[in-house]
Measured scan of single mutants.
Amino acid sequence: RPMNAFMVWARIHRPALAKANPAANNAEISVQLGLEWNKLSEEQKKPYYDEAQKIKE
């Protein structure tokens, strides 16, 4: 299954978030990633939607 825009973004940002929160488990990191993603504007998300579309094609 191809990655969606959030997954493209999260793949880039997960390592830094995990390093900054070494005690957090994957579920907690995923929740935090979701919160951070939701704070982004549509303009900030656009490159990730574009990349996800390329992956689908």
Rank of each mutant, 00 (worst) to 15 (best):
R14E: 06
I29K: 01
K56E: 11
V8T: 03
K56L: 14
R1W: 14
H13I: 08
N25C: 06
G34C: 15
V31T: 10
A5F: 03
I29Y: 02
F6W: 03
L35T: 07
R14H: 06
E57G: 10
I55K: 06
V31D: 06
A27K: 11
S30H: 11
I55R: 07
Y48H: 01
A16D: 07
P2Y: 13
E43M: 10
K54C: 08
P22W: 03
S41M: 03
R14T: 04
N21F: 13
P15C: 14
L40Y: 02
F6L: 02
Q44S: 06
I12E: 09
A5K: 00
M7L: 13
R11F: 11
E28V: 05
Q44N: 04
Q32D: 02
N21D: 05
E43H: 09
P2M: 14
K46S: 06
I12G: 03
F6A: 01
A20K: 10
F6N: 00
D50N: 08
Q44F: 04
N26L: 10
K45D: 00
E43Y: 08
K39D: 04
N21H: 11
Q53D: 10
K39C: 06
E36I: 14
R14P: 00
A10L: 09
I29D: 01
A52Y: 11
Q53V: 10
I55Y: 10
K19C: 09
V8S: 03
P15E: 11
L33E: 01
S30A: 13
A27F: 13
D50F: 10
M7T: 08
W37F: 03
L33T: 01
E42C: 14
R1Y: 13
P22Q: 04
Q44I: 04
N38A: 13
W9T: 01
N25H: 05
I55T: 08
L40R: 00
N21S: 06
Q32C: 09
D50G: 04
P2Q: 14
A16Q: 12
P47C: 06
K56Q: 13
K45A: 02
M7H: 09
E51N: 04
R1K: 13
Y48S: 01
K45H: 01
E43Q: 10
L40A: 01
Y48R: 00
F6E: 02
K19W: 05
L17I: 14
N38T: 07
M3K: 07
M7C: 15
Y49K: 06
V31E: 09
N4M: 11
V31H: 13
V8M: 08
L40C: 02
N4L: 14
R1L: 12
Q53G: 06
N26H: 13
N21W: 13
A23K: 13
N4S: 15
I55F: 09
S30D: 15
L35W: 07
V31F: 13
A5P: 04
Y48P: 00
L33N: 00
N38Q: 10
E57F: 07
S41K: 03
N38D: 10
M7V: 08
K45S: 01
N26I: 08
N21L: 09
G34P: 02
I29A: 01
I12Y: 09
Y48M: 01
A23I: 07
Y49P: 00
A18F: 05
Q32E: 05
S30V: 11
A24I: 05
H13L: 05
W37K: 00
R14Q: 06
P15R: 10
N25Q: 06
P47A: 05
A16T: 09
S41F: 02
M7E: 15
P47L: 05
E28G: 03
K54I: 07
N4F: 08
I12H: 07
I12F: 05
P15S: 09
E57H: 12
E36H: 06
E57A: 12
E57W: 05
Y49E: 07
N26Y: 15
P47T: 04
A23E: 13
S30R: 11
H13E: 04
A23R: 13
R11K: 14
P15W: 09
N4G: 07
D50V: 12
E57P: 07
K45Y: 01
I29R: 02
R14G: 12
Q44H: 06
A5E: 05
E43G: 07
K46T: 04
W9N: 01
S30C: 15
A10S: 09
E43N: 07
E57Q: 12
A20W: 04
K46W: 05
P47D: 03
V31R: 15
N4T: 15
N25E: 04
A24S: 07
I29G: 01
V8D: 04
P47M: 05
Y49S: 04
L35Y: 09
V31M: 12
E36M: 15
N4H: 08
N38P: 01
F6C: 06
I55D: 06
P47E: 05
A20D: 05
V31G: 03
R1D: 12
L33H: 00
N25G: 09
Y48I: 01
A10Y: 06
Y49D: 03
H13F: 12
A10V: 09
E36K: 08
N21V: 03
K19M: 11
N4I: 10
Q53Y: 07
A24Y: 12
Q53A: 13
L40D: 00
Q32I: 15
E28N: 03
G34H: 15
N38S: 13
A24P: 03
K46P: 01
L40I: 03
E28F: 12
P15Q: 09
D50A: 11
R1F: 13
K56I: 12
F6T: 00
Y48T: 00
A5H: 01
P2W: 14
Q53T: 09
I55N: 09
E51D: 04
W37S: 00
P47I: 06
K39F: 04
N21K: 04
K45I: 02
I29M: 03
K54H: 09
L33C: 06
D50C: 07
K19Y: 05
E36W: 12
E28C: 06
N26Q: 12
A52R: 02
A27N: 10
K45N: 00
Y49F: 10
P15V: 10
F6Q: 02
V8K: 04
P2N: 14
K19H: 08
N38V: 07
I29L: 11
M3F: 11
A5L: 01
